[in-house]
């Protein structure tokens, strides 16, 4: 039982029978997973999905599929199944789902301001409105004084914040963060967790998918957990093609939305369970 009053009836993202082959290699198969919209009275509650799995298992490829970067027309790849996103659910198109890649690519020839402005090019806002929105987000990110810098003049953490802001400005509520905690010191991890929580508290539909190996940070803010791995045959050999092996509803397990959840014994126990499950993937 959990301590919260909520409903989760509406599906806002769904992957149905997703499979991927690159050449003759089966990368992903039979992926069926969905994200529900959590609704809480008097609270704007977005969704945070922790997406864990061993290195090289296919998490980034699945993220690219969710982001609409890999499609059925992508040369050299054979994609099956469908990804539907939004309200109402429609086939995903590149740009619907923001995707912050591991190395936080930005346009190096543009200033921080221009990098954010380009993300608003389809917004329909005029110059002044764009300016206002950009400085508002820079203010929240404590990056206002860096607006005129080029990306390679920023630290890793600052660059990451701008990359997240850029994707947030142009996507329809969904953002995938690929390995967002790698290379960050503990304080920066806390700061990033705070930023992710702030993003999902802005709109009911806002959803962040965190692709990571960092168990503690991911579990401490996630409300749902996906574990990706491969099946084994009777002899214990790995079967090609990864799928979502386990979905944990952390809200139902009363392991989400609590402040300082990471300090509780329940959390530590669950973390241990996930770690054990992780080893078998």
């Amino acid at each position: 039982m959990n301590d919260f009053n909520y409903t989760a009836d509406k599906t806002i993202l769904e992957a149905k029978n997703v499979g991927l082959m690159i050449g003759n290699n089966i990368i992903l198969r039979d992926i069926n997973v969905s994200i529900k919209d959590f609704v809480r009275p008097d609270v704007i509650q977005g969704q945070i999905i922790g997406f864990l799995g061993p290195s090289g298992i296919g998490k980034s490829k699945f993220s690219e599929i969710l982001a609409g970067v890999i499609t059925k027309n992508t040369v050299g790849m054979h994609l099956t199944g469908d990804v539907l996103v939004g309200d109402p659910l429609l086939p995903v198109h590149v740009g619907n789902v923001g995707f912050v890649q591991q190395r936080y690519p930005l346009f190096d020839h543009m200033s921080v301001y221009a990098n954010l402005e380009i993300a608003l090019s389809h917004s329909g806002l005029n110059h002044e409105q764009k300016k206002e929105k950009i400085f508002e987000i820079l203010e929240k990110l404590k990056m206002k004084e860096h607006f005129n810098k080029k990306p390679n003049q920023l630290s890793g953490g600052q660059r990451q914040r701008i990359a997240i802001a850029q994707q947030f400005l142009c996507s329809d509520h969904f953002i995938i963060l690929d390995e967002p905690f790698s290379g960050l010191d503990p304080l920066m991890v806390d700061e990033l967790c705070g930023l992710i929580k702030a993003i999902v508290s802005k709109d009911e539909m806002n959803t962040v998918i965190i692709v990571s190996h960092e168990l503690t940070a991911t579990l401490s803010i996630a409300d749902t957990l996906w574990l990706m791995g491969r099946d084994r045959d009777e002899k214990g050999n790995l079967i090609p093609g990864a799928k979502i092996q386990q979905v944990y509803d952390l809200v139902e397990m009363n392991l989400a939305w609590h402040p300082d959840i990471a300090a509780t014994p329940e959390f530590a126990k669950f973390r241990g369970e996930v770690k054990q499950a992780y080893a078998k993937l």
Binding site: E64, A67, V69, V94, G95, V97, G98, F99, Q101, Q102, R103, P105, L106, I118, A119, S121, H122, Q166, Q167, C170, S171
Partner: peptide
Amino acid sequence: ERFIHARTIQL
């Protein structure tokens, strides 16, 4: 990743 980045911001 440069191309993916540009596409994901709807360019």
